[in-house]
């Protein structure tokens, strides 16, 4: 990257505190596709000049997949260890690159001693747009392009956030088209509830294929996502349908970074 991503440890050593902690998440850290999104979120943060930091190697799984799989022990072990790190750094505000991390830290950590202001990166982008710090200029033009947004369950139904990601897309002057099942009626990509880590049960179709069929029906050029797991499922679906040339699956952060030439 063209700039150095600051860590909490470095800032603390310099006697400083960031305005916001960027919680990258496991997918954002290790998954090649999601790593690109992580870097784009950093580019946006860097571009607007927010004082931020990441935990780097001190970050650890939030415990979300363990909790959804039914292993509350492992979840709480992870949660308490993370809370100890976050509290030690006196973290006040967190932005996450993943709706699952977002939901877990925001809703399930407070009861275990970790109370922070938590936002998802699409909310950060919306705020930056509202504050006039982010526009859609100097980069790739999405003007007139047909874009459809897939609601991640843990952002949408799970936490009622439907507008922020759509606001982030509205500035593009693109043609936003909704799928039949959207917002509170949105169809899951098939990865939630620890499904990401197992083969699906016997059925007649994969959930991500059902979703991609629905998305392709409206003939979009871009399917916008806000979750690394949705990203995997939707990309796989597009690949399976042999539509990789015509349809791009992009995270809102990637779209924002591209539109601003970051």
């Amino acid at each position: 990257m063209e700039f150095k991503v600051p860590t909490m440890a470095e800032l603390m050593a310099a006697g400083e505190e960031p305005e916001i902690l960027f919680w990258v998440g496991c997918a954002g850290s290790y998954d090649e596709r999601a790593q690109k999104i992580t870097r784009d979120i950093c580019k946006i943060l860097h571009h607007v000049g927010i004082k931020y930091a990441v935990l780097g190697t001190e970050e650890s799984c939030t415990g979300d997949p363990a909790k959804r799989a039914g292993n509350e022990f492992l979840f709480q072990m992870q949660a308490m260890a993370n809370i100890e790190v976050l509290n030690a750094y006196n973290v006040k505000k967190i932005v996450t690159g993943c709706p699952h991390c977002f939901n877990t830290i925001k809703n399930e950590y407070p009861g275990l001693g970790g109370a922070y202001e938590v936002i998802h990166h699409t909310q950060l982008i919306q705020d930056l747009i509202n504050e006039g710090k982010l526009k859609a200029e100097g980069g790739e033009s999405f003007k007139g392009k047909k874009i459809t947004y897939h609601d991640p369950c843990y952002l949408g139904r799970g936490n009622g956030i439907y507008e922020a990601p759509r606001k982030a897309l509205e500035v593009l002057d693109a043609q936003l088209v909704e799928m039949k099942r959207c917002k509170s009626n949105g169809l899951c990509c098939g990865a939630g509830g620890a499904q990401m880590f197992k083969e699906p049960e016997k059925g007649n179709k994969d959930i991500n294929v059902e979703r991609i069929d629905e998305a392709l029906e409206i003939g979009p050029q871009v399917i916008a996502a806000g979750c690394p797991f949705c990203m995997t499922m939707l990309s796989d679906g597009v690949k399976l349908k042999d539509k990789e040339q015509e349809v791009k699956v992009l995270d809102i952060a990637e779209i924002t970074a591209r539109a601003n030439g970051l």
């Binding site: 850290s29 992580t38 650890s60 799984c61």
Partner: peptide
């Protein structure tokens, strides 16, 4: 997956030392 979280602090089999390599 649960074993990976226990051992590597991530649901996949990656080393915790590599967590920041994306940067």
């Amino acid at each position: 997956m649960l074993g990976n979280i226990e051992n590597n602090q991530a649901p996949w089999k990656y080393s915790p030392a590599d967590r920041f390599n994306w940067a």
